[in-house]
Write a protein that binds this DNA or RNA. Structure first.
Length: 191
DNA sequence: CGCCAGATTGACT
DNA sequence: GTCAATCTGGCGG
């Protein structure tokens, strides 16, 4: 447990990956910051009116790159952290919108949740330099690791935040913090 | 090359 | 409530 996620985890439909990312851990090894993911949004290919995939260029190319690659989207003076996720030959990425800061070593919360994709990257110390980093590699500075298991019944769905033209289905996924069972888990390995 | 819009945030009227 | 900062790609001249 608590190891990095497998790339195959991300080789599925972005909405399914998004839901399963809730409870997982994002870790910045260099900075020593980490958080449990509590809010995400999937973005799909060109059929998704809110997706940067339809714009082409580097963002669209990155959305089609190796699943588990970081995609850093710069907008309005924020860096937004996404993880590439898609089936073979498709495009997709998951936006990380909320975390609970944790002490990774003892796996305990450090503070109230952080909501807002720009605030998440600011807390974690993620910027453009992490663009295209591979997050399923234990030797990378930025990693995605296993964390808590979240029951599907505890996931709330709503429309994606801040998009003008959204898909008919609600694609914002959240877990309520009080529904997360935090328990002390001894660290089996050092990182 | 200039200008616009967007998956935002925080400061200020 | 309003405004502006800043990154990227599309579009128009």
């Amino acid at each position: 447990m608590r190891e990095v996620l497998e790339p195959s985890f991300f080789r599925r439909r972005p909405d399914l990956v998004a839901m399963d990312l809730l409870g997982k851990v994002i870790l910045n090894k260099r900075r020593g910051t980490a958080g449990i993911i509590i809010e995400v949004e999937p973005y799909f290919g060109p059929e998704d009116p809110a997706s940067r995939a339809r714009k082409g260029g580097d963002l669209a190319r990155t959305m089609g790159s190796e699943p588990c690659t970081a995609l850093i989207y710069g907008v309005h003076r924020q860096w937004l952290l996404n993880v590439v996720a898609h089936e073979e030959g498709e495009l997709g990425a998951i936006l990380i919108r909320g975390i609970i800061p944790i002490n990774f070593a003892i796996f305990e919360p450090l503070s109230k949740p952080i909501y807002g994709p720009g605030r998440v990257t600011k807390y974690l110390g993620v910027d453009k330099s992490f663009h295209k980093a591979f997050l399923c590699d234990p030797y990378q500075e930025l990693q995605l690791r296993h964390g808590l298991s979240v029951d599907a019944s505890l996931i709330t769905r709503s429309k994606r935040v801040g998009v003008r033209e959204d898909l008919p289905e609600p694609f914002n996924f959240k877990v309520r913090v009080e529904d997360l069972k935090m328990k002390r888990i001894p660290l089996k390995f050092q990182c």
